[in-house]
Design a protein around this nucleic acid. Structure first.
Lengths: 183, 183
DNA sequence: ATATTCTGTTTAATATAATTGTCAATCGCC
DNA sequence: GGCGATTGACAATTATATTAAACAGAATAT
């Protein structure tokens, strides 16, 4: 998200020091320092106090922020966002950018040994494809089963019921794409 | 702000239970309950997780929320928002509604005995007027000084340098209006 | 009727944000 | 150069958000 950099940019544009803004907002300069360095995620209440003091509305702030985000092109490994609910079943799905603002969703997937997206099959709109980067994985699509190894790939209509299982004893990594994005 | 009610409304519109949403967002149902009842102000990070899971953008969320706020008509005493930086100098300025969205700014002002808006005079665009509700206050406008008591009032062009001082030994309360709003 | 599963709420424990007080660096200014 | 004022950063404490687990009411099934 990068609330910190955006807050700092806006604060400076208005010619305020951390202490000045803190006084107006009823917070402390230390808090603003931590927020601007992205070392804490402020509460909605705190952020609102800060923006009221500038002043700028919450809607405006996030509107600018998310606009910036969707213009972002390069992503460091740690910036990919995990979209698998709490690494369920040893599966990690790390998404590139904010798919809500794009037609394309790219995932860096990791399957622990034994990891499984099933047993109930997945189905959603669109097409999806991927290449295995490390390890091996058993992919089932509409009844057809295949064991894919590093370098192998797949491509299918996402409406067909599908399932991924790591039946080996090594971690499996896949880079995949999906369009339109699904959640 | 009322983040809670709005979150609840959106969640229900999407047919999600607290637990379903919590799982998608990687939080717990208890947290969502507390947020929806406005018993805590979520961190920006937490709120983003929740909205991503619905999905709806932060900008969209606050855009709807602040729109609603500006349609609000009635305000309980405790809903007036303090806009004086940390009650500086014994002065409390409690604002009715969100002045940023209106042409009119109404304040419920409280001056402790000895309170003073400062030796340096205030100046801003617009007109301002008010009625003393309790106690008494010394008002200086463009050099002219007057001691006003409960029931008395004032009305002047805000560009004229002005100052308020409570020189009595009783708390003074004023209800004032200002247009356009100033901060 | 009585489990059973769903719902949202609450409480005590834990993780995290915010404050307080202090620090070193920078900028004028004499 | 030395001094005071202002800046942003940081460590330790305090306050608050979040979790985990248990609870109670409503709907559905057995």
């Amino acid at each position: 998200m990068n609330v910190g950099d955006k807050l700092r940019a806006i604060r400076k544009k208005h010619g305020l020091s951390q202490r000045e803004l803190a006084a107006k907002a009823g917070l402390t300069n230390g808090t603003i320092s931590l927020i601007e360095k992205n070392r804490t995620s402020p509460s909605v209440a705190s952020l609102k106090s800060l923006l009221d003091a500038i002043p700028i509305s919450m809607a405006e702030f996030f509107s600018i922020l998310e606009e910036d985000d969707s213009a972002k092109v390069f992503y460091r490994a740690q910036e990919l966002t995990e979209i698998s609910p709490s690494h369920q079943g040893g599966v990690s799905l790390r998404q590139l950018g904010n798919a809500a603002h794009h037609a394309l969703q790219v995932l860096h997937e990791t399957y622990e040994p034994g990891a499984d997206t099933g047993p109930e099959f997945l189905r959603h709109e669109g097409e999806e494809a991927g290449v295995v980067v490390r390890g091996s994985i058993e992919v089932t699509v509409d009844g057809a089963v295949s064991l894919l190894h590093a370098g192998d790939g797949y491509l299918f209509d996402s409406r067909l019921p599908h399932r991924f299982r790591n039946i080996g004893d090594e971690i499996c990594e896949i880079v995949s794409a999906c369009t339109p994005p699904s959640f």
